[in-house]
Amino acid sequence: MTPWLVFVFGMLIDWPLSFVGAVFTSLFVLGKQQVPVKYAATLIIAAYGYMIAAWFVTGVIRPYPGAMLLIVIVAVSLSYYLLVTRNDILMVVMALLGALLIPLQMKSSPETAWELAIWLPHNLMIAWLVSYLMFSLLPAEPNEAPPSKKEAEYDANRRWLRLCVAFLPFVGFAFVTDNVSAFTLTYVSVQLTLFAASPTNGPTMIKDAMVGNIVGGAMAVAIYEISVIAPFLPLVIVVLLLAYLILANRMLNGDGLAPTALTALTVVCGVSLGPLMDDAEGKLAVRLMQIAASMGYIFIAMLAVDKWLPEKQTVS
């Protein structure tokens, strides 16, 4: 229930992007063991470096859209290369946020881009500190599971090329037309990262993720409607707790849809229930449509690359 605590506390004190902190917290606490201090420090420092560097670089080249697009494409490609060579999901997610979210926001509002550049790493640090505290209070059980069957190894360069082919056209379209929101672009990139990092990243996994997003979005809509009918904050907090408990129980029972549903629930609730959310109902509908469009694009793109650029298994 740690992500719920972060989300609710952030909602109560109005800290910026607290729902992002809740998503980061879920990534930390879903691991079998506590994230080591050394790795967390490296990750947080790198996150600040990615975001601030992205803000300064894109601020300088803001008058030159062609140069900005080229730098974004190179940064995204390098982020995915880091994924296939090191499989460091958290580091890659932060690199992608810096490569995509900051430049796209810089085009319309440098002030908003700066707030994102500062508060995304802030939320990452808060999430790790909270997860560290929870693991200290409630230590994880020793992992005594038998060694699992060795997973098939794949050609790293081929997998990197597949990711670039699947996603870079969408990046180009977003930056050239300005018809794609920063949220949609980032959501697509992060979901592709999670799929690529999984050994079972086939159509079935993507379909399950689509269903999970629908479930999480539907739960968020229900919670929002309850908050409209009965605008009583303690009631909303209790309903949120119930939703998190249901999804946490499903995760403990091995339901593969639950993690995606939890992310969708947190993001959509963060948009509709968070501070400074004028026209929350309109933003809620838009965010649901953006999530649906993101998952639809990923499904089509991955089907295409599976057909014309399939994985290549390496020879052991």
Rank of each mutant, 00 (worst) to 15 (best):
A41C: 06
G31S: 14
V20G: 01
V23F: 10
V29N: 06
I45D: 02
G49Q: 09
F19T: 00
V20F: 03
Y64F: 14
S18W: 06
K32G: 10
K32Y: 05
G59P: 08
F56R: 08
V35W: 07
L30F: 12
Y50G: 01
P63E: 07
F28N: 10
A41W: 09
V35A: 12
P36T: 14
A22M: 15
R62P: 12
F24W: 09
T25G: 04
A47P: 01
Y64P: 01
R62I: 13
V57Q: 01
K32Q: 11
G31R: 15
P63F: 03
R62Q: 14
I44M: 07
L43F: 04
R62S: 14
Q33D: 07
I44K: 01
W55S: 00
Y50T: 04
Y48D: 02
V29A: 07
F56W: 13
P63T: 09
F28P: 08
I52A: 15
I45S: 11
Q33K: 08
W15K: 05
I52V: 15
A53W: 03
L43G: 02
W55G: 00
V57P: 00
W15H: 07
P65Y: 13
I45Y: 05
P63Y: 02
K38S: 08
A67K: 08
R62C: 11
M51F: 01
I45A: 15
Y48T: 01
L30R: 15
V20D: 00
A53T: 13
Q34Y: 02
V35Y: 11
Y39W: 08
T58G: 07
V29P: 03
A40C: 12
M51Y: 00
W15M: 12
S26N: 10
K32S: 10
I44T: 02
V23G: 07
R62W: 11
K32I: 00
I44E: 03
F24N: 06
I44Y: 03
I45C: 09
I61Q: 03
P65W: 13
Y50L: 07
S18F: 14
A22I: 15
V37S: 08
A40H: 08
I61E: 05
A46E: 09
V29D: 09
A53I: 10
V23S: 11
V60P: 11
T58E: 10
M51K: 00
V29S: 05
F19H: 03
P65A: 15
V35F: 11
Q33L: 01
I61C: 05
F24S: 03
F24V: 04
G31Y: 13
A47R: 01
Y64N: 13
G31V: 09
G59L: 12
P16T: 08
A67F: 14
G21W: 02
G21C: 06
I52G: 14
A53N: 02
V37M: 09
I52H: 13
R62G: 14
L17Q: 11
V20L: 06
Y48E: 05
L27I: 04
F19Q: 00
I44G: 00
V23A: 12
V35R: 08
K38F: 04
Q34A: 12
V57Y: 02
L17D: 13
V35Q: 09
F19Y: 05
P63W: 04
Y39L: 11
A46D: 09
G21S: 10
R62D: 12
T42G: 13
P65T: 12
I45V: 15
G66Q: 11
F28V: 12
T58C: 11
K38L: 08
L27V: 05
V37I: 07
K38G: 03
P63S: 04
W55K: 00
I52W: 13
Y50I: 03
A47Q: 01
G59H: 12
K32A: 10
